[in-house]
Design a protein around this nucleic acid. Structure first.
Lengths: 221, 221
DNA sequence: GCGGTTTGGTGACAATATCACTGAAGCCAA
DNA sequence: TTGGCTTCAGTGATATTGTCACCAAACCGC
């Protein structure tokens, strides 16, 4: 399946002159990942900038002890700068990107990236913006983990994962990995939510039965 | 006091041609902060890039509950990109920079910054590198806070703060703010270290009496 | 030395994490 | 459809960390 002129879809590329965009369309390579596949990890760092055309990439960090935490998600229209970051800094990190849905992305090789950053202000701003947003996302994660209560964080995350709906498909383990905590902790908090009539649970499924109540918890200091 | 040709001191500027460096020297403004002063905070974001010529800036985040955590330190030769990040993303964050020593810095206004990034590859790399290093610093903080034990983290930090010496001037509260925990927790862990003969304490002062032992703790998984 | 302020110590209790299990739910092959 | 296997969830005991309330010691300015 062709994806057409993807340069339409990004803030940083839509504003570029036609000639530059044509050059981009020539230079970039389209890649696909099916849901669940690893997009990058510490052992396999693509030397390029990635634009996400379709789908979601979940970027998470793993501890030695086997616990995980989700750092942020890259959505369609975003670029994924963490790989670029590491490539530039030539330092180790232990974050990993996983395709959360089927993903279509565009890969721009390093030389083309360099040239574009040098020559096009719009593109440059796009890249800096992407970095900035990730920095700020991480500040939020630090704040949550260091100072947040687990019930508040879980309520927030349930609302976010439901995405307008009332249903979430996730195991307790997956929710634990979202927040960087242990499954047992999630089980207990969810049970508490359940007893208070905020949710109903079955294996792998959570239904919010009182979104207002959950929101109240999510927004309590 | 004049600081001479500061463009010598930065990777990103030392490689630039003489003409560009002269332009930099003309465009940039030198600022000084005495130890303890706030360099930036959420209410006061300088619209510019800052190069640190001398001293150290501690960048930390505060919670509503009054607890703090140190995110990273900007040392001489580094640039401070967090302000730039926020400026670009136009989003709120709640990090704050404090001069840890007397600080001499160079402020490069936004337009000059833009021009330089566009025109000079060496400068561009410097800036991207600075971003990348911060991203990676934050990944480390997330890892520590989410998965690390407090005794391990404290041992690490004591060694880092001693900086080759065996003495650290810090109150328990200050150490708590380094790690994003509470004073009481630090007091107890330090007491434990003390009983094990790893350190000696007096008010506001800690002496490492067994650096090897501390290192062993710091390096335990 | 005196009174106030900062710093550190401590017990009780709350929240979260870890460990070692148990049982329940779904899956699949015979 | 049953029985076994695997994944998922529940639970008690215990360890670690955070919170609260309070006290005592060290330091500071006078």
């Amino acid at each position: 399946m062709a994806i057409g002129d993807w340069t339409e879809r990004f803030q940083g590329t839509a504003a570029l002159p036609r000639s530059v965009r044509n050059r981009l369309l020539d230079n970039a390579r389209i890649v696909r990942f099916s849901a669940g596949k690893t997009v990058f990890n510490p052992d396999n760092i693509p030397d390029s900038l990635m634009f996400l055309v379709n789908g979601t990439i979940r970027v998470s960090q793993s501890s030695e002890g086997g616990r995980d935490i989700v750092l942020y998600r890259v959505e369609a229209g975003d670029s994924c700068v963490l790989t670029t970051a590491c490539m530039l800094a030539e330092e180790a990190y232990n974050a990993e990107g996983t395709a959360e849905t089927d993903v279509v992305a565009v890969i721009l090789p390093r030389p083309a990236f360099d040239r574009l950053v040098a020559e096009e202000a719009a593109f440059r701003n796009f890249v800096f913006n992407a970095y900035s947003r990730r920095l700020i996302d991480l500040l939020r994660v630090v704040d949550d983990v260091a100072f947040g209560r687990i019930d508040v964080r879980l309520a927030e995350r349930l609302i976010a994962l439901a995405g307008g709906n009332n249903d979430i498909s996730a195991t307790h383990q997956q929710l634990a990995s979202e927040l960087g905590t242990a499954r047992e902790v999630i089980s207990r908090v969810l049970q508490d939510f359940s007893k208070r009539g905020l949710i109903q649970q079955t294996r792998g499924q959570i239904t919010m039965t009182n979104a207002m109540g959950l929101r109240a918890i999510a927004e309590s200091t």
